[in-house]
């Protein structure tokens, strides 16, 4: 269910350059704030731009930010988690630094980064990734700590298994499933945060169509053109819902006790 929905959304967004009916940037003063019609399925915004086309193009920003943040936060978090939890190098120091990072408000970091870099998608990705990393580190570290104390790891040592192989064969496969599930939730939350930041005007630069930017622009005309805010909002909600449903499903699939044999 979640998978099908997500697949449809991803295909539509990826194919945006070919299926979007209009240029998302094309301004047409005569066509301002037209309600949904057969010509403009989702209507037009205050500058006469086609909302369907902008929603499709804007989704690329959301998916890119969501995916990049999920991969970056999980990759960095797992590496630090392994260092702290398996090698036990600087465990205390690392965890206190992570606690400190968790105390930095994400919005504040975003404002500072945007001011310093004059706004870019890279800055948005960094601003969202940094506060997510400590959460992943905590999860990864606790998973690694519990797996490394399992008897099968002790058995592997007794059977003469080398350290790198223990890491790859015994530790990683047994911590991967919860981390992959966590990554899907990081992705969903990153897409939400990207939209918040856009809505607040401290996210993706305003000239790039993104769902947050579209909703921010539609705010001033909400009383006469609700659709301009409604459609990006619905797409945002559907995408986040689909990703979360996928995450739940993945958790079941990745459990070897529940998995069906192929």
């Amino acid at each position: 269910m979640g998978g099908v929905l997500l697949a449809i959304i991803v295909v539509l967004i990826v194919l945006a350059p070919w299926i979007a009916p209009f240029d998302p940037m094309e301004i047409d003063p005569i066509m301002r704030l037209r309600p949904p019609s057969t010509e403009n399925l989702f209507g037009t915004d205050a500058l006469g731009r086609d909302i369907l086309s902008r929603v499709l193009w804007g989704g690329r920003v959301s998916l890119f930010v969501g995916f990049t943040v999920a991969v970056a936060a999980t990759g960095i978090g797992l590496s630090i988690g392994l260092l702290a939890g398996y090698l036990r190098r600087g465990d205390e120091v690392i965890m206190r630094v992570m606690d400190g990072l968790m105390a930095v408000p994400g919005i504040l970091l975003a404002i500072v980064l945007m001011t310093l870099t004059r706004g870019s998608i890279t800055a948005v990705v960094i601003a969202i990734t940094v506060p997510e990393v400590p959460r992943v580190v905590r999860l990864a570290r606790s998973l690694v700590l519990s797996v490394r104390n399992q008897t099968y790891v002790e058995a592997a040592v007794a059977m003469g298994t080398s350290e790198p192989r223990i890491l790859v064969r015994h530790i990683l496969p047994n911590v991967a499933a919860p981390l992959i599930v966590q990554a899907t939730f990081v992705m969903a939350s990153a897409i939400m945060i990207e939209a918040y930041l856009g809505f607040l005007g401290i996210g993706t630069p305003p000239e790039i169509p993104s769902w947050g930017n579209m909703m921010a622009e539609a705010r001033s005309t909400i009383s006469i053109g609700l659709w301009a805010m409604l459609f990006p909002g619905i797409m945002l909600a559907l995408t986040v819902l689909a990703i979360n449903l996928c995450g739940d499903r993945l958790r079941d699939i990745l459990d070897p006790r529940l998995a069906r044999r192929i």
Binding site: M159, G160, T161, R169, N174, P256, R257
Partner: peptide, 23 residues
């Protein structure tokens, strides 16, 4: 403990072969 001493993500053959692989 026969439950926690075998890696749940390896097949029986992989588990038994692992020491031979190591050497």
């Amino acid at each position: 403990d026969p439950y926690s001493s075998l890696n749940p993500r390896m097949t029986a053959a992989e588990i038994v072969a692992e020491p031979m692989r190591n050497y």
